[in-house]
Design a protein around this nucleic acid. Structure first.
Length: 543
RNA sequence: GCCCAUGUAGCUCAGUAGGAUAGAGCGCCGGUUUCCUAAACCGGAGGUCGCAGGUUCGAAUCCUGCCAUGGGUACCA
């Protein structure tokens, strides 16, 4: 519809002697329903350029546009110079027919056809259970992946982790501490060691598996290995509990083993972008337009995160994805520009790399913030949260705010099993429709050949027009990668349906009206299902 | 100091490639049920869109400055 109108407007402008590309023509949904279904500012644009009165221009444009009455019922000129279009019944019938024939494919697009995309998310190192911050990252990443799949992209969900560095060593040392303590050997808690009961449990498991054979082990490796194994199993289980399955786990270690790290370093030297200073190797980021040079290899010989991150992104680029998306928390905002600059300097098309930064999460209970400290391990784990509120609520709450905004996870609201909880409100609309369809089936009512022109009340028109906007919503989601837009869309859809439901009886003695309203119910349910599916949330048949 | 994000109703937040009278949910006040799920619907009160300038036919939206909050600014990741 948008295309149709902007094309018509562009042609009308051309007849008046103005060349306005259709991309510049504003066409939007007016806030006030009395202003029609779509509104254009074209006359205001032309008037601005040509110093004519906007209203005159608008009237001239109107005279140069014509539509089938069934598609566009009326075109009105409104001050200061808007052109307001109101859809006709034929358009609405088309929306319903399209949804009925496309069902679960309604809204799909093929823009990603034959294109591959890598979405990297979670990427928590296996040092402990996932927390609620990881939860937001995980759910956003999975939702982005679903959105891209719906647009026909071939998606790889990838998890990048590091089991080498200092943090993992400390983890191993902490396990050793618990191991020795439980065997009543003399030991002391490692400096900066990990607090958290799960490490004592891991030590117990180690005793079961190996007895006391490791008491004299100088090497921390066995402790580290079991810690990593157990923690990773736990992480995978947590992800499975919220409906997330990764396609690939990428170990940073492989970048050392394959020589990728050395290779990157060598090429930086060759390009004169790396230099030695104070025993460390520095990357000449100032040459690449960044503020300061940074260390990429410490004087201890260990690389800083920048070097493996660059090598990792090179690896992803070499795997020939058309698009690479990183879902990162706000604490990474300072580091990724260096990584992107580094990759670019190696001659890659860094435009393919898309960073989606999300802000932090706070948890509130009884209106108060719950304080969390990772080091002291008194944080709420993602698993605990999932157990308390369930997968659907968890996913919805993590997705309901713009990724740019801090997310306040309200426990009190999340735990409410009433319509105050927006997830249930949407699911309830779906369950209610299912119930109506069941009743219709019992009474042998069908919607094989509905007379869709009967759907002409305000509630019905508003609902159908909104259903027709779903494909645009999907396109917006794909281009903006902002899942919360969909949660807003679905709440509004559920509201429009509830209004329709309150005013109009679906299954009645009038078979004609029953058929047409049944068609509307079926299509509404289909859009709710498709939308919830993109969020990874279930659409129950009854509640 | 510098960089990023945020600041909209009592609370939590939408709306920001400029558009018409700034919205939703919760909370508050009031109303609706012989009828397909009342887990619903309707109405009301509630706003200097952080502050001050600027750009223009038009600014919550763009620009500048300031204030506030969170995050970052390591030879931690």
């Amino acid at each position: 519809m948008r295309e149709l109108l902007s094309k018509a407007l562009s042609e009308a402008a051309a007849k008046l002697g103005y060349k306005i590309p259709s991309s510049e023509i504003g066409l939007e949904k007016p806030k006030n329903r009395s202003h029609g279904d779509l509104s254009s500012n074209l006359a205001l644009l032309i008037a601005g350029k040509s110093k004519q009165k906007p209203l005159d221009v608008a009237n001239k444009l109107k005279d140069n546009i014509s539509f089938d009455e069934k598609i566009v019922e009326k075109i009105e000129v409104a001050p200061p110079g808007f052109l307001n279009f109101t859809y006709g019944s034929g358009y609405r019938a088309e929306v319903i027919e399209t949804i009925i024939s496309e069902k679960s494919d309604y809204g799909r697009s093929s823009v990603g056809e034959n294109k591959t995309v890598n979405v990297e998310f979670v990427s928590a190192n296996p040092t402990g259970p996932l927390n609620i911050g990881h939860g937001r990252n995980a759910v956003i990443g999975d939702c982005v992946a679903r959105i891209l799949e719906f647009n026909d992209f071939d998606v790889t969900r990838e998890y990048y982790f590091n089991n080498a560095g200092r943090q993992m060593r400390l983890l191993g040392e902490t396990v050793r501490y618990h191991y020795l303590t439980k065997l009543e050997k003399k030991t002391s808690f490692p400096v900066d060691g990990y607090e958290g009961e799960y490490l004592a449990e891991i030590a117990e498991q180690l005793i079961e598996e190996k007895g006391d054979t490791l008491v004299d082990s100088e090497d921390v490796t066995p402790f580290k290995e079991i810690a990593e194994r157990v923690v990773f199993e736990d992480i995978k289980l947590t992800l499975a509990n919220i409906g997330i399955r990764m396609d690939k786990y990428f170990n940073e270690d492989d970048l050392y083993n394959s020589g990728a790290i050395e290779s990157v370093l060598k090429r930086f030297y060759e390009k004169g972008l790396a230099y030695d200073k104070d025993g460390a190797v520095w990357l000449r980021l100032t040459e690449l337009g960044m503020g300061e040079d940074r260390v990429i290899k410490k004087s201890s010989g260990e690389p800083t995160y920048r070097l493996p991150d660059i090598a990792y992104h090179e690896d992803k680029l070499n795997r020939n994805y058309d698009l690479i998306i990183d879902i990162l928390g706000a604490d990474h905002h300072a580091s990724f520009p260096d990584v992107v600059a580094g990759v670019k300097a190696l001659g890659y098309d860094a435009e393919k790399i898309n960073i989606l930064l999300h802000q932090f999460v706070t948890l509130t209970k009884d209106g108060k913030k719950i304080k969390m400290s990772t080091r002291k391990a008194n944080y709420v784990t993602l698993d605990e949260l999932q157990t308390e509120v369930g997968e659907d609520v968890l996913r919805y709450f993590f997705l309901m705010r713009s990724v740019n905004s801090h997310l306040n996870f309200e426990m009190d609201l999340a735990k409410k099993e009433t319509d105050e909880n927006p997830v249930y409100y949407i699911q309830y609309a779906h369950a209610r429709i299912s119930s109506i369809i069941r009743l219709a089936a019992e009474r042998d009512e069908n919607y094989d050949k509905p007379d869709l022109s009967l759907l002409n009340s305000d509630e019905e028109k508003a609902l159908i027009t909104f259903l027709g906007e779903f494909p645009e919503m999907v396109e917006k989601l794909r281009s903006m990668l902002q899942p919360h837009l969909l949660t807003v869309f679905l709440s509004e859809l559920a509201t429009l349906f509830s209004r329709f439901y309150t005013e109009h009886k679906v299954v009645s003695d009038d078979h004609e009206i029953t058929a047409s309203r049944l068609a509307l119910c079926v299509t509404t349910a289909a859009v709710i299902r498709n939308g919830l599916g993109l969020l990874g949330i279930s659409a129950p048949e009854s509640m």
